[in-house]
Design a binder for these strands. Structure first.
Lengths: 343, 343
DNA sequence: TTTTGTTCCGCAAAGCTTTGTGCAAAGCTT
DNA sequence: AAGCTTTGCACAAAGCTTTGCGGAACAAAA
């Protein structure tokens, strides 16, 4: 019908009352007579009035928008976390503005700028794999804008964050490998400036010690989280004279690439090499063999991020940063359960 | 430093000039002297002034926001399309508000309502699998708001849309199966009220005819696109006395489930059954055997959607709906190439 | 000195909502 | 009947930006 949405003014004019009267009537303000209130509400409903969020935002100085920065949207891990964020946001009448750093430090900085100039009320961020310098988040402290990091975090003494216990997770994986009979456990590790990669590597070492296995630096490959890099690393490990009997890949993508390389070498999983992935998703069940994997509560991580955001928004005083550690779970499938080598 | 972002007013006050002068100076308006312009611009830069998008939106009556509704965000297909939409939006200074219908008709209606009351400038939508009634899009016609459908479309005579040639795609798959030696080609089909599912079924039939194969209704299972449904359908087909030697699954998820069921039955791919998926993504290469798949230009589909949106926004007259058909490509991997059965 | 013309900047409105304050009329008390 | 309270609504400001128009100050021309 009407090209543009109708405003209080339109209703006021039609009913020959003032704008403020309409506004109050719609909120059932006692100042307005019942008769008039009914009439106004009826017309408002008929015309499908809804308050202009721009005007509200201008008045209240709030946009009701949360900015999110992920390294990559096209991924089960991030998209399901976003889904979790979005669900809490929606419950609170907020919207989510999603941007992607494409794993680039430069783009991440741009995203921060853009989101801030869009007047988002807060940020939920997972760092790009390149990010080593965190100064672009400093102005956020000054502006007292809520900021929550997840997964790849930094400056946890200043900002709230949602993480998993990477150290313990890696520890459990190694233990599981050991119990499955593995003795030469390799690790394809991520860049060590990334908190998660670093913690997983630490957990790997601690896990070895716990199993009384000696740390062998030849069994660790540090990669840049690209497919090519992962393939090269897997190959290098598998070509070792004394090659590993289990591989702990730093994330799921790397695990799948590793799986592919193991098969390409003519080796069998789990007979020759055990394998475990991280981030349990649908595809872990369809690969062959089904991939043992650490289940991340991705949706809940997202919800937790949003909750921490709202906690900060709602309390007017500066809240101390909170670190939330989420539980993961080892889902054992065939890829890590040793069968007899001769079978 | 400052808790709230600074405005023209702040700069004006600091420099003892009027707000309008500041506004003009920042745009290099000739009315303002060079000296004053320089001074104002310097201060604005120092204070990191950026115009308040809410105020601009209110003035210009535009939010620079595109609303997107997808059935499910947590999916390679949709998230990469969104990525494409976002890239074009960003180039044009627009933002994308993403909502998910979770494949529910009710939620889809809510999303439309919410986005409209958020004053998005247009919508880009992929229908939920439940949606058979399209009346919730009617008010969008009345309001003359740009609306672009993709993949699962409707009312193509009224709205622009971006699709792939599903009919031809299915046709090519059947042809490929036939050339690989398959003679009893089954189809796990989607709900027939969905344009894509329907077209694929048509293409399947046409493909059979083209190969001079007889249509056998026992070889077709219509499912509701759930994992359970898919597994049941696959099982039913594989339990047929004269079971199929090739299966065309309506989408990727169904293909993976089918693959799993085939293996569970002790059958081999491709020796006993050929299989083809749709939507080529990373995981197609890591399953065993690698899955032959139809590559969708997902990122470009997203970009095309956004382009159609901007075409409508920019032309003031009502533009006739455009249907854009994107090219797909059959990527042949091992799952569909017949080996000798005896091997 | 008065008129004409520049140059440079301020005023105000519009876009929409909320809310404190003001004001008129009606109802009440004494 | 005069004064007080209550009821019911309107006015205006604030939040921020853009832009048409008006106007002051000054220089040059008549």
């Amino acid at each position: 019908m009407s090209r543009k949405p109708i405003s209080l003014k339109d209703i006021a004019k039609e009913l020959n009352v003032s704008i403020s009267t309409v506004s109050r009537a719609l909120k059932n303000h006692p100042d307005i007579s019942v008769a008039l209130t009914t009439k106004i509400q009826a017309l408002a409903r008929e015309r499908e009035f809804s308050p202009n969020p721009l005007a509200m935002g201008l008045l209240k100085q709030q946009t009701r928008i949360i900015g999110v920065i992920v390294p990559n949207l096209v991924t089960f891990f991030y998209s399901s976390i976003i889904s979790g964020i979005e669900s809490v946001a929606r419950e609170n009448g907020y919207y989510v503005l999603i941007t992607s750093s494409y794993e680039s430090y430069i783009k991440e900085k741009e995203c921060v700028e853009n989101l801030l100039s869009s007047r988002v009320e807060g940020l939920i961020v997972c760092l790009s794999k390149e990010t080593k310098d965190y100064s672009h988040f400093e102005k956020i402290i000054n502006k007292e804008i809520p900021l929550v990091f997840f997964d790849r975090v930094c400056r946890t003494s200043e900002f709230s964050s949602v993480v998993i216990d990477n150290r313990d997770m890696a520890f459990q994986i190694i233990k599981h490998f050991y119990e499955s009979g593995a003795r030469r456990i390799a690790h394809i590790a991520g860049p060590q400036h990334l908190s998660i990669a670093c913690e997983r590597f630490e957990g790997y070492q601690a896990g070895l010690k716990n199993c009384k296995l000696k740390f062998d630096k030849n069994l660790v490959e540090f990669i840049d989280l690209t497919i090519d890099d992962a393939a090269k690393a897997a190959n290098k490990l598998l070509s070792l004279p004394d090659s590993p009997d289990a591989i702990f890949s730093v994330n799921d993508m790397v695990a799948y690439v590793t799986m592919k390389e193991i098969k390409r070498k003519g080796l069998r999983i789990p007979e020759d090499v055990l394998l475990v992935g991280i981030t349990d998703e649908f595809h872990a069940t369809v690969v062959d063999p089904p991939l043992t994997s650490i289940m991340h509560p991705t949706f809940d991580i997202g919800r937790e991020c949003a909750s921490l955001f709202f906690a900060q928004i709602q309390s007017k005083e500066k809240t101390p940063p909170i670190q939330k550690v989420m539980k993961t779970k080892l889902i054992v499938r065939e890829s890590s359960v040793r069968k007899d080598r001769t079978c």
